[in-house]
Design a binder for these strands. Structure first.
Lengths: 213, 213, 213, 213
DNA sequence: CATGAATGAGGCTTCATTCAT
DNA sequence: AATGAATGAAGCCTCATTCAT
């Protein structure tokens, strides 16, 4: 039926426009944060009419959140394969951790700008968004805790408050991400740091596996 | 001279007005972040006229930065006494770290709201303010590094990349501060966590000083 | 010819769409007046596309006026039979008046909502529409005047300024219509009022045919 | 105190600005109805800034209603003296009615444009305003009813349904006001009509006091 | 110095209208 | 003929800033 064809074409056109807006939105948010840009900055960059924005998003906030959800989905996907083969020895665990971090950093490298955007500007959007970000971080903490608990159960790491340690691990991770996002660290350095960080997490700065003088 | 007296009185009144604005500013920023409140919200809360604001600050940002500088000064003051007696054994170092964290947390407890304000909303003010915050965090990293280097020199902790470890330490600290600011942790819990965190930092989750199974 | 058949079918479809729009227009105008509804409210209710509106009407006003003209035609039709047998005695006149009002009110009852719509909102559409409504009312005045002049000629009512009296009669009519449209009067009350009103018009509140104390 | 002087001056200035806006608002509403003019039309005519409008009124509607309330107060004031000496004979009643109408028409003549504005455009502002206008008209009906009941009690007019008659009287009044506002009637004619109208109301078109042929 | 009324540029949002399909 | 996505002009409203008192 011609009507169906018409509808399909319309939908495709609409989806394309939506994508232009998302792309343009990401670009201007990355450049100017959340509060800086006006709707008109987004539509100008997307090369669509002012009114078109409102056919797709009810507010700047909604577009912002859509971008966030997209990134989050990508990040979470990276962890799916990791639940399959839980490590069964300390060394396996160490290797798995290093690999997990490398995988995570690879996606972050791809979406560096968005990462920076959300880490810096997400908390200031509004209370709700801020809380959403906290929840997201906590889900990373729970992920770390899951592995740690597993390792403790199998007995190849010492017993500890896994919640506290997991929080600490995420804190460490975030700090390096921030440094890298800042430009203090370049990508190569980040890569070579992964092992150092894992060692610190496993053995602390006072413990063994360091070269004692 | 009467003119001088007059001037002194004027100055006192002016200073008082300035304080009212700072206080009111802090309150509304805490409630609504940096971008939320209007100048009128601040002057209304301060119970001064609209024009009065501009006699003391040229913009909302300037008031915000003034508050930040004030808090920073307070925090930095807490670290002055710590440089005086550097620890000379691992256990002393551990005790000193615990004490330092307790001292730091005491001031944070006092200024909890402002801490939350700046951590959440500082990075979104503008690029300059964001960079200022990064510099501030780095100065904490350097402080940690100073102690760690000292301990490494004296040989009672293993050799490691002290920059990396210090960054990690600050990352851990921030994470717990965030948790506490969030309300996920209450003040008592924060206190009791200090030792656990220090242990983790000294020995990691795999190293000794934990109860091995 | 197949082409002709096709054309006829097209025309029928077009007419149907036009009717949907008229119906939907009436409904939303009744609910929200003239200025309230947007074109999109009309097309949504009619369940036709946005562009379709413009194939049938050039503007909201045109649809509105089309509805008005339709109602007016209906109303005017009710008066055609009345010109045929002009009354030839006071009592006949009184009976004819009562019957005319009853006939008029029957059509108004059917189209109550539209009546309310035009009485309330017609004058605010624009100067032209307002004037059109005045002309319409005046044609009712002229109708009343025609009967009154006839009765005066035949000598069974006293001489008076028939223009003035006719205006007054229409004013009275309108007032009760308004009361009824308001909900102040229900339909039954309106019916039973007809005689009272006619009595008042014939004899005033001071004249005979009332029960003098 | 200088502060008090200052406040008084500020208040005076503010009140003056408010008056400019009311005057300008009345002018543009009279010219273009309620829905026609934009806020900017009002502020331009008032020669104040766009933002100034919102310091005094929250919306066009509010200014409109303020104007209405002002006029209503004026009109109602005209009736205060009439409650003092209720008429005690039919002729007194007739004279009092004529005088009352003349007094009312004098104020209407002064505020002709506003009258037209509200009668034409008030009902279309929104449901609430429309209902407010109905209530206003009803209060005029009640006023008429009060006099009529009084006359009936004293026995110099026949018994009738005073509510119905009062509604009719107001209807008549409105109709002539509309005619006059339209320009169909000029002021002189309106004046000379008052007696005719009163006669019609008292005796109807069929009753006595007319010249029977 | 403090005040607060006035200002108007700036951004948001709506919605009548167009037009490619 | 019907459709509905896209458009952008138009109007609303806010709020930082000025300035006369």
């Amino acid at each position: 039926m011609s009507t169906q064809k018409r509808k399909a074409a319309d939908n495709a056109r609409k989806e394309q426009t939506r994508m232009r807006l998302l792309k343009a939105g990401a670009e201007v948010f990355i450049q100017q944060g959340f509060h800086g840009p006006r709707i008109s900055d987004i539509v100008n960059r997307a090369e669509v009419g002012q009114g078109t924005f409102y056919r797709h998003f009810s507010s700047k906030r909604e577009l912002f959140e859509t971008l966030f959800d997209g990134l989050l989905e990508q990040l979470m996907l990276q962890f799916q394969p990791m639940t399959e083969n839980p490590p069964s020895s300390l060394d396996q665990y160490r290797q798995a951790s290093i690999q997990a971090l490398r995988r995570l950093s690879s996606i972050m490298i791809q979406e560096k700008d968005l990462m920076l955007l959300f880490l810096r500007h997400g908390p200031s959007v509004d209370a709700e968004f801020s809380s959403k970000m906290q929840k997201t971080l906590n889900s990373f903490v729970q992920l770390a805790k899951f592995y740690l608990d597993h390792a403790m159960e199998l007995g190849f790491v010492k017993k500890s408050d896994s919640e506290v340690v997991s929080q600490a691990l995420v804190g460490i991770g975030l700090r390096f991400v921030e440094n890298w996002l800042d430009g203090t660290l370049n990508q190569g350095q980040l890569d070579s740091l992964v092992e150092k960080i894992v060692d610190f997490a496993f053995y602390g700065f006072a413990g063994s596996r360091g070269e004692l003088p």
